[in-house]
Simulated assay, not measured.
Amino acid sequence: MQLLNALIEHLRRTVPALQEMPNRLSAQVDEGRIRFAPGASLSQGYAVTAALTLHAYDDTLDAVMLPLLAWLSRYQPELGPEPGLRFAWAFAGEAPADLRLWVPLEERVVARHDCASGEITLDHRQPAFAHETCPAEHWQLLLRDDSAGDEGYRLVAEWDGPLA
């Protein structure tokens, strides 16, 4: 799925814990559905729930969720609160723990027939929905932290915006 690959690449680029060690993120799809309309068209849609695991994650949840939500709002804006996103984080005392995320995704595949040549061409669609009311070129995520000194916030993630 091209959409899942794009999400993985986005998280590896935007989540600080993955920037230096991108192999700490793994993904799998346990079950997917194919949405199609019976008839002459072979166009379809792949609907999956991607299971993402950030291995040995010990940073704030916000450093993952905000980049994830920013990406979803651009590429999956129809995703509503149900089924929404789910996560699990198995803490093991002071040691880093695996963070699991379940993210519903839908990818459209448009099939075009050329009866003369006998060719069928496929286009995987990943439309980006413009929604930026504040299209900054670079974003920083700051989290209130009383131990951060005078500013009261610490930088937990940063990434380039869609217009960069």
Rank of each mutant, 00 (worst) to 15 (best):
E151M: 12
A92V: 12
Y75T: 09
L72F: 10
H131D: 07
G45C: 11
E107K: 02
A37G: 05
L3F: 01
S117W: 02
N23W: 04
A128M: 09
Q44P: 03
A97Y: 03
V156K: 03
A51P: 01
R108Y: 06
L141M: 08
V48N: 02
H124W: 10
R125T: 08
R144P: 15
D146K: 02
M1W: 00
A130I: 01
L7V: 07
H55L: 09
D150G: 13
D30M: 12
V156N: 04
L141E: 01
A95W: 02
P38G: 08
L4E: 02
R86M: 10
L42W: 03
L122A: 07
D123P: 04
D58R: 12
A6I: 03
R13T: 15
N5V: 10
P77H: 08
D123W: 08
R154D: 14
L69Y: 01
W102R: 07
R112S: 14
D30Q: 13
C134V: 04
A92H: 08
S26T: 14
P38T: 07
E137Q: 06
L18V: 09
A37W: 00
E20F: 10
D114G: 11
R154P: 15
M21V: 14
F87Q: 05
P38R: 04
E119I: 12
L163N: 00
A97T: 10
R33S: 15
Y75F: 15
A56P: 06
E107Q: 14
N5L: 14
A50I: 08
A56S: 14
V15N: 03
R35K: 11
Q126D: 06
F129E: 05
T53M: 09
D146I: 11
L72N: 05
R108K: 08
P127G: 06
L72C: 10
D58I: 13
S147M: 07
Y75C: 11
E137Y: 02
M65P: 05
L66Q: 03
F91R: 10
L105A: 07
S117C: 06
R100Q: 11
V110Y: 01
M1A: 09
A136V: 06
E78P: 07
E94W: 06
L122Q: 04
L25R: 00
N5W: 03
T60I: 12
L52N: 00
A63Y: 05
S117Q: 03
Q140M: 10
L52F: 01
L69R: 02
A6R: 04
E94K: 11
G80H: 11
A116I: 09
A88Y: 00
G39E: 06
H55R: 10
R24S: 12
D150H: 11
G152K: 07
G80T: 15
W139V: 10
L61N: 01
L72E: 05
E158F: 13
G39R: 05
L7C: 04
I120F: 03
G149R: 01
C134S: 02
D160V: 12
D62S: 13
G84S: 13
